[in-house]
Design a protein around this nucleic acid. Sequence first.
DNA 1: CATTTTAACTAACACTTGTTAGTTTAGAGA
DNA 2: TCTCTAAACTAACAAGTGTTAGTTAAAATG
Lengths: 191, 191
Amino acid sequence: MALKPETRKDEIIQTAAKLFKEKGYSAVTMRDLATAMGIKAASLYNHINSKQEILKAIIISIAEDFTNGMDIIIKSKDSNISKLENIVALHVNIAANNTNGMASLNNDWMHLEDQLSHYLQLRNEYESNFLNIIKEGIAALEIKDKNPEIIMFSMLTTLRSLYLWIPKKEDLDATNLAQNLSEVLIGGINI
Amino acid sequence: MALKPETRKDEIIQTAAKLFKEKGYSAVTMRDLATAMGIKAASLYNHINSKQEILKAIIISIAEDFTNGMDIIIKSKDSNISKLENIVALHVNIAANNTNGMASLNNDWMHLEDQLSHYLQLRNEYESNFLNIIKEGIAALEIKDKNPEIIMFSMLTTLRSLYLWIPKKEDLDATNLAQNLSEVLIGGINI
DNA sequence: CATTTTAACTAACACTTGTTAGTTTAGAGA
DNA sequence: TCTCTAAACTAACAAGTGTTAGTTAAAATG
């Protein structure tokens, strides 16, 4: 069994994601990436077609993971509070499995060229689904009648920033983190 | 009375902050900045010494605003919940007055050169003060006994991202936003 | 063994980068 | 009017950018 069926191309993409996390897409040169791989810049082009292709590979696959996860959540018959808990868990899981890539998704999406409009479409649909769950929760008296956009903004920015925080917890239990985070985000903190 | 006592240097810094917000520090060239100012790149150097100096001017002044605001909050005799509400208001006010600069603070701090360690020191102190308020609030039975770091992380990432959100609300009432945000962050959303 | 594939290399390209030097122009103060 | 200053300009540089072309060495495949 192949525990790491990683191709050389995948290795390059993962290494790039790590560098992009530290300095951002624009500040990472192909020579930086090559050095991190232990090869020369020109050799990268045996495996990838362009720097842009690397960014696209990192961002679009994660964005599609979110879209697919959201699709499952909306189709369920859970309560709206449960759906929000599932969204928290979705973010924790994706961030835990792809800490470096999440940085590019958050910070470097605007450097996508051909795929920019595709990315924006996925993001808009995701946020629209998220907002609908909150609005329906309010209508169903599951959720307090506060400004739905503020609620979504507050939850989503926290969830999007998980990549900054997860690496600090060496003993990560994703289920436990999702549980605690849901309690704080949904239940509030005052007694 | 001078409503805009802005020097040419200040204009350049503000324009740069806007461009940095859109594309990030590394992706904005001095020629981009010059074009946005309606002049040639070399002319910028009549007013500023380097690109790096612009970034420093943007980030450090905001970081010091946060430090000063936090200092006043810790010294007060308010309850810890009130202190948290004041932190929310601090972030709303700074973000509302400096939307573009907040983007650099969040996304481009790692491109600071000489001032990097100074910035990190301010940030660490700020987070340490924030965390203490939460811990004391828990000890005083004002705040639920949840993981204090999760609470801080959740609040802080939301507050740090306000710059993304404030510009969308053309009719911004800072007091009102701070109020609503406090209710959501502190009071939670479930009924 | 012969051949193809994989993955590295050196060398170079056209272009962009931040920045400097030196010059010009228009307005303000004497 | 003369001088000074603020703020623009043109021209250029050295270094760094993504990328291409052509080559080589080792490993896998027939």
